[in-house]
């Protein structure tokens, strides 16, 4: 892979005696739409937490743009070009839509910027930028509303827009389609294609395979904390190890009997 944005090399993580990640190595190409799939408990969310710095890996290295992230606090990673969404929507419930999105600018604001009375200036650059981004994704109907009152599908999108506000190069999405109906899932796919068209690299954890196939060209599969497949989305359906992880063992002779 010529120009990886994210490089994982031999990443391992255990909690007490439970090994959650073992020797996970793969690259995410710049500009790619890359899926990370695997059965429940495969370690996908743990891997996201290691990448975003919620906790450090026990072994191995994580590199962003060639820079080793060991010892870089999680709060500094967003300024280095990495933002993420969460499996369960984690918008700030008491903030309005536009305030949630403006939070995405935090990492780029200096001390003086922190002290600008943005809330009292309706035309402030910070507010306009957040409104414009919401507008660009068709979410301009609700900027002043408190997010707790909005429908689930809308909140999912707002969470992605908040991450985009940080102008990330790499966006980690943890099960963005979970809990969405087929219409909403299709809309989310179009939405993420637009995000991708802006040059943002996507790494997506997802269970919904039709969604993954329609969005991502590269797939990495994990099972029991190990990497079992890393290749094209088309190849994953033919891969023995992946089929076994999802469908169980094929008994010897079963093919003949059938």
């Amino acid at each position: 892979m010529p120009d990886p944005i994210l490089e994982l090399d031999g990443v391992g993580k255990h909690f007490g005696g439970v090994v959650v990640l073992q020797d996970v190595s793969f690259h995410v190409a710049r500009g790619a739409r890359h899926a990370l799939i695997g059965p429940n408990g495969a370690g996908k969310t743990t891997l996201f937490n290691v990448i975003s710095g919620v906790f450090p890996p026990d072994e191995g290295t994580v590199k962003l743009n060639g820079r080793d992230l060991a010892g870089v606090p999680s709060r500094r990673r967003i300024a280095m070009g990495m933002a993420r969404s969460f499996q369960n929507i984690r918008l700030m419930p008491h903030l309005s839509v536009v305030e949630n999105v403006m939070l995405g600018q935090h990492a780029r604001q200096g001390l003086l910027g922190q002290l600008k009375p943005v809330g009292l200036l309706p035309q402030a650059r910070e507010r306009r930028a957040a409104l414009d981004l919401l507008d660009a994704f068709g979410l301009d109907a609700y900027p002043g509303q408190v997010v707790a009152n909005l429908p689930y599908g809308i909140r999912k999108k707002i969470e992605v827009v908040r991450a985009l506000m940080a102008e990330p190069e790499l966006l980690l999405l943890d099960e963005p389609a979970a809990g969405l109906n087929p219409t909403e899932t299709a809309a989310l796919r179009d939405f993420l294609m637009e995000v991708s068209a802006r040059g943002v690299t996507l790494l997506v954890v997802e269970h919904d395979m039709p969604f993954v196939n329609s969005l991502c060209e590269h797939v990495t599969v994990m099972n029991f904390g190990r990497l079992i497949y890393d290749g094209t989305a088309a190849g994953v359906r033919e891969d023995e190890a992946v089929l076994e992880a999802y469908l169980g063992h094929r008994r010897k002779g079963a093919t003949n009997a059938a």
Binding site: R76, I78, R90, L95, A107, V118
Partner: peptide, 17 residues
Amino acid sequence: LAMRAVHDDEPVADLMG
């Protein structure tokens, strides 16, 4: 805004920088 974010969800505020 950052203060209210810390009030609402510390881990996410951290990841937002």
